[in-house]
């Protein structure tokens, strides 16, 4: 994906990932999508949780007529397989493809999918990613204009998220240098990391920048755009909310990655009720704290803002 391809598009792609399963990625994709559509924006949601696709059920759709299966198996275009929802401006590309596991998608199928996603005619395309750090998941994360991670306040989710972002960053570094014709250098330096006294990815990047000035320029330029938006889901108290600020600091020191903490969503019974009822949360639970939280997150993502927290509590 060349950087210029992004400039020509008017719409913005947001990919929602984060590593651990069960953190609410699909719930947030569906809710943020609904929020945007209710604002009058034209929105397409893509279910990339291959093997565990269930985005459609958040819109009360049982068995979607069309899905990525026909894209992969019958050569349909994404335009052909759009599924309508109860929201006027919101359509889905469903991923009900239990016949295909993530690793059976070929490289060329993946590229074709990404090419068409980049061409979708919508103001916002939201990609719901599956759990884990599979290469297809990382690549879908990396084509996005906004890379969003969803976290819940527990240690395993935090660990998986660090791992996910680290893998995405490593993949990005390799992809960037490959694009400029320096494919071998990264792996070569990494393989000899002990010799160079490199202990982690941040030191690898610093080493690459320091050793080759042209690589330094390329990486500075490309990685300055590697910014991740963080949503903290299922928070139960003030301490939980401030975990977002702490994670931001740790990731900056650990990977040198900038994080925008775009907001949190309170733990809320209305959420599981809406999931159980298979009704879009943002249409049926508009008066809840959760809906207000999601609207605040959505606004921050649209405007490039961050959550403002009272000082001294973190």
């Amino acid at each position: 994906m060349s950087p210029t391809a992004k400039v020509q598009r008017e719409g913005e792609i947001w990919a929602v990932g984060g590593g651990k399963g069960g953190t609410g990625k699909t719930f947030l994709t569906s809710s943020l999508g609904s929020f945007l559509a209710k604002k009058g924006r034209k929105v397409v949601l893509v279910d990339m949780d291959i093997g565990g696709a269930n985005l459609h059920s958040f819109f009360g759709i049982d068995r979607p007529q069309r899905s990525l299966t026909s894209f992969f198996e019958k050569g349909s275009s994404l335009q052909d397989i759009l599924v309508r929802t109860d929201l006027d401006n919101l359509t889905l590309i469903t991923g009900d493809i239990h016949s295909i596991a993530s690793d059976t998608i070929t490289f060329s199928q993946k590229l074709k999918l990404f090419r068409q996603i980049l061409k979708i005619n919508a103001q916002n395309v939201l990609i719901d990613l599956g759990a884990g750090s599979h290469l297809n998941t990382l690549d879908a994360f990396l084509i996005a204009d906004k890379m969003v991670v969803v976290l819940v306040p527990e240690v395993i989710a935090i660990e998986n998220m660090y791992h996910f972002i680290k893998n995405a960053l490593f993949r990005k570094v390799k992809a960037v240098l490959k694009e400029y014709g320096f494919k071998e250098i990264v792996q070569h330096v990494w393989d000899r990391r002990q010799e160079f006294g490199i202990r982690n990815l941040k030191e690898l990047i610093d080493h690459l920048k320091g050793s080759f000035s042209f690589i330094g320029t390329i990486l500075d330029n490309e990685l300055s755009r590697f910014r991740v938006a963080l949503i903290l889901n299922m928070v139960r108290n003030k301490q939980d909310i401030f975990l977002g600020t702490a994670v931001k600091s740790v990731l900056l020191k650990y990977l040198g990655v900038g994080i925008e903490y775009v907001g949190y969503v309170e733990y809320n019974d209305a959420v599981w009720r809406s999931v159980r009822e298979r009704k879009p949360f943002m249409l049926n639970y508009t008066a809840t704290a959760g809906a207000a939280n999601i609207a605040a997150v959505g606004d921050n993502l649209l405007k490039g803002g961050e959550i403002v927290l009272p000082g001294g509590l973190g």
Partner: peptide
């Protein structure tokens, strides 16, 4: 819990 997973780094 934000540092625990990165004990080796921090």
């Amino acid at each position: 819990i934000v540092l625990e997973p990165l004990e080796e780094e921090f």
